[in-house]
Amino acid sequence: MNKKVPLYGLLVAVGSAIYVLENFVPFPVPVPGARWGFSNMVIVYALPTTPLSWLLALAIGKAVIGGLLSGRFLSPTFMMGAAGSITASFSMFLTFKIFKRVGLVFHSVIGALINNLIQVIIGAQIISSWAILSYLPYMEMLAIFSGVVNAVMAGILLKRVKKGVGLR
């Protein structure tokens, strides 16, 4: 248990860093505050070995610290990121418990789909118009992309660190 704290701290740090760097990557769909969601990579990485409580702590941690670092703490953008991340972690945890014969990509893509769905819903609230719901299919297309990227990156990392410093 004690050994885990610094490891999760590290994951929060990496997640926050990706969160901040992500701000510089242009997002092709004009939904206010929407983002790629690459910082969920750390959650995918932790998914196979982490209980739900720690997973959620990770999601909240990276959203808060990433938000503070990019000066967006408690802004609507931050809320979208946090809500997306939390629900994504939760749903990935569920699929991981339920589906046994699937790969990491499955969970990651489901998480990304849910993440972007939440972002669109909250984005619609921010501009008080459901018109941007028409962007949902595009957002979900991008979610598949970032979901696969996250899973592949996290998966490669998981295989590499299997014998070294891991989360177990």
């Binding site: 014969r101 790969g103 990509v105 499955f106 489901i110 899973a151």
Partner: peptide, 14 residues
């Protein structure tokens, strides 16, 4: 359990 990055089901989902 044995960790897979890509399984057949994943492709089907996508």
């Amino acid at each position: 359990r044995n960790l897979k990055i890509f399984a057949r089901t994943d492709i089907i989902l996508i």
